[in-house]
């Protein structure tokens, strides 16, 4: 791959790294990453992957920008209120780095569209804000053999894990979504805006490490932090034999759209 003079300058700080170099930058430039959710986590992920020159970034989000988002969804500005989030995100990514091919999906990820959408990508990032879709991303990626990064934030806390085939998935740790109202959401409990940046940037780093092959991924681990004390903890885990989707006897072989409001399980082909 031949970089232009401008690209050599743009990515010089990557090229300088012994662990990345020209070869690593090529891998990044050929990478295709899907970001599910253009919100608190999706925003820093999108920014850092765009800055790094990831070749293709897909973003899926059905929402429009709301004023209350601006406290943490830093890819959206005041003038973007009421604009579809994926369009707002695409604009900023393109301005930051025109090298990046941005593909937008102004819709929600579902059991019907997930397999086809994720198929085109090397890595999937969960930047979503609800449990049904977190489990959907997990199941879709495990069934398709796609690596992904799970992320979640609340109040002053964040947690993330990386899954590649054969390693612990989200369901290995959390077998099923919690009952509705068992766990508060950010709109109920609140979240310190910068927490989104802390966690999303870790996810972006995991993506870049995956693409370049550098370092050790957060596989078979759950990294969690509490920003009040700045205590970071890495819990060791492993693929659970009893996991409903990646265990020895999977009971989930098809994607499930958990109802958002109620705990009914609807299976779809």
């Amino acid at each position: 791959m031949n970089f232009t003079e401008d690209q050599i300058i743009r990515y010089s700080r990557h090229i300088l790294l012994q662990d990345v170099g020209v070869d690593g930058q090529e891998k990044i430039s050929k990478g295709k990453v899907l970001i599910v959710g253009a919100g608190g986590l999706g925003a820093p992920v999108a920014f850092y992957l765009a800055a790094a020159g990831v070749g293709t970034i897909g973003i899926i989000d059905g929402d429009v920008v709301d004023l209350s988002n601006l406290q943490r969804q830093i890819i959206h500005f005041t003038q973007d209120v009421d604009k579809p989030k994926v369009l707002s995100a695409k604009e900023k990514i393109s301005q930051l780095n025109p090298d990046v091919n941005v593909i937008t999906y102004q819709t929600l990820l579902s059991s019907e569209n997930a397999p086809e959408i994720i198929n085109d990508y090397d890595f999937v990032v969960d930047g979503t804000d609800n449990f049904p879709v977190k489990f959907l991303i997990n199941d879709a990626c495990v069934i398709a053999g796609k690596p992904f990064s799970h992320g979640g934030i609340l109040r002053f806390d964040g947690q993330t894990l990386t899954h590649v085939p054969g390693t612990a998935c989200y369901r290995c740790l959390f077998h099923a979504p919690p009952p509705p109202n068992a766990v508060p959401t950010c709109s109920q409990a609140g979240v310190l805006g910068a927490i989104a940046g802390m966690l999303g940037t870790i996810q972006a780093a995991e993506v870049l490490k995956y693409l370049t092959g550098v370092g050790e991924l957060l596989t078979n681990k759950l990294l969690s932090f509490n920003a009040k004390t700045m205590e970071f903890r890495t819990i060791k885990t492993k693929r659970s034999e009893k996991c409903p989707v990646c265990g020895s006897n999977p009971t989930i072989t098809q994607l499930v759209d958990y109802a958002q409001a109620a705990c009914e399980i609807k299976t779809k082909r």
């Binding site: 970089f3 050599i8 010089s12 700080r13 090229i15 300088l16 170099g21 020209v22 070869d23």
Partner: peptide, 14 residues
């Protein structure tokens, strides 16, 4: 600098 070494590295890579 650091383009001096960046360019050096790119050539060495070839």
């Amino acid at each position: 600098c650091p383009m001096t070494f960046v360019k050096t590295k790119i050539e060495l890579n070839k």
